Computed example of a mutant assay.
Amino acid sequence: MTEPSSVGPAAARSASGGVGTVHSVVLDVPDLTAEADFWTALTDGTVAKRDDDWITVVTPDRWGIAFQLAPDLVPPQWPGQEHPQQAHLDLYVPDLAAASTRAVELGATVLREGEQWITLADPAGHPFDVCLDEKADGVSVMGATFDCADASALARFWSGVMGEPVTYDADGVAMLGGSRPLLFQTVERYNPPRWPDPAYPQQLHLDIEVPDLDAGEAAVLAQGATRLPGQGDDFRVFADPAGHPFCLVR
């Protein structure tokens, strides 16, 4: 399912006692080069790893955004739930209009415009938001947002995994703090992925870096994760309580 890349030094445990740290946000894509080129240009990132079926881009603010080849990907059709987005990246930008124009020039499509954020789709169809922050120094990653049936419950799960507090929980939206924020939004008629069923594909997943796969597996299962098929010497595959696949990597 996934392959780790070289974003930073191996993590021990998070300072507050979690299982691991966010290593990369991984998007399934039918065209590795087109997707990596888009996100490299949009974020002013650099390519850290390139294989036949995998490319990792590291942003200036040290987020890893990786792309794994999925030739038969069924792209999301935002905002419906027949082929849902499931998760998306949020970016801070100092100028919404300029950021949107730049993204479209690079190959994005505008899906919705608002006063504080604009929703677009990247060349593979993955939605993402550019969010206004007039103090931002260029494009930076605000966090990754996951759709779910119960934002509060999913935030509690990921708080245990990441060892980070829930810093916001109201009106169907919850958020974890820390250097790699994760956000969760309650969606009506939420339609989860059923990995590895291609009819209900994952759209993206997190790679969580851990110092020990056996200990990490025991810890995430105790938090409420489900083991999924697929593993290698340096990764194992799980699903969170909302069905989102994720990998423990080392």
Results as ranks from 00 to 15, higher is better:
Met1Arg: 07
Pro4Val: 14
Ser5Trp: 11
Val7Gln: 07
Arg13Ala: 13
Arg13Phe: 02
Arg13Lys: 11
Ser14Glu: 02
Gly18Asp: 00
Val19Trp: 01
Gly20Val: 14
His23Val: 14
Ser24Phe: 04
Ser24Thr: 09
Ser24Tyr: 08
Val25Thr: 03
Val26Asp: 03
Pro30Cys: 08
Thr33Val: 15
Ala34Ile: 04
Asp37Glu: 10
Phe38Arg: 02
Leu42Gly: 09
Leu42Ser: 09
Thr43Phe: 04
Thr43Gly: 03
Thr46Arg: 15
Asp52Trp: 15
Asp52Arg: 12
Trp54Tyr: 11
Ile55Ala: 07
Val58Lys: 01
Pro60Leu: 06
Pro60Thr: 14
Trp63Val: 08
Gly64Tyr: 05
Ile65Ser: 03
Ile65Gly: 02
Ala66Asn: 05
Phe67Met: 13
Gln68Pro: 07
Leu69Ile: 01
Ala70Trp: 01
Pro71Lys: 06
Pro71His: 06
Leu73Tyr: 01
Pro75Trp: 04
Pro75Asn: 08
Gln77Phe: 02
Gln77Ser: 14
Gln77Trp: 01
Trp78Arg: 14
Pro79Leu: 13
Gly80Leu: 06
Gly80His: 10
Gly80Arg: 12
Glu82Tyr: 06
His83Glu: 08
Pro84Asp: 13
Gln85Trp: 10
Gln86Ser: 03
His88Val: 06
Leu91Tyr: 00
Pro94Tyr: 01
Ala97Lys: 12
Ala98Phe: 08
Thr101Met: 12
Arg102Tyr: 11
Val110Pro: 02
Arg112Met: 13
Gly114Cys: 08
Gln116Ser: 10
Trp117Val: 08
Asp122Gly: 03
Ala124Cys: 12
His126Phe: 04
Pro127Thr: 12
Asp129Met: 05
Val130Gly: 00
Cys131Pro: 04
Lys135Arg: 13
Lys135Trp: 14
Gly138Asp: 03
Val139Tyr: 00
Gly143Leu: 03
Thr145Gln: 15
Thr145Leu: 15
Asp147Cys: 10
Ala149His: 14
Ala149Gly: 08
Asp150Ile: 00
Ala151Tyr: 00
Ala153Glu: 09
Ala153Lys: 06
Leu154Met: 09
Arg156Leu: 15
Phe157Ala: 06
Trp158Tyr: 04
Ser159Lys: 00
Val161Ala: 05
Gly163Ala: 09
Pro165Ala: 08
Val166Cys: 11
Tyr168Glu: 08
Tyr168Ile: 12
Gly172Trp: 01
Gly172Met: 09
Ala174Asp: 02
Met175Cys: 15
Met175Gln: 15
Ser179Leu: 10
Ser179Phe: 08
Leu183Val: 10
Leu183His: 12
Thr186Lys: 12
Arg189Ile: 10
Arg189Trp: 15
Tyr190Met: 05
Arg194Gln: 06
Arg194Asn: 03
Asp197Pro: 09
Tyr200Ser: 12
Gln202Thr: 03
Gln202Gly: 11
Leu204Ile: 11
His205Arg: 03
Glu209Pro: 02
Leu213Ile: 09
Asp214Thr: 13
Ala215Lys: 06
Gly216Pro: 01
Gly224His: 08
Thr226Gly: 03
Thr226Ala: 15
Arg227Gly: 05
Gly232Leu: 08
Asp233Phe: 00
Asp234Glu: 07
Val237Gln: 09
Phe238Gly: 07
Phe238Cys: 11
Phe238Lys: 04
His244Lys: 05
His244Asn: 06
Phe246Thr: 00
Phe246Glu: 06
Cys247Gly: 01
Cys247Ser: 05
Val249Lys: 00
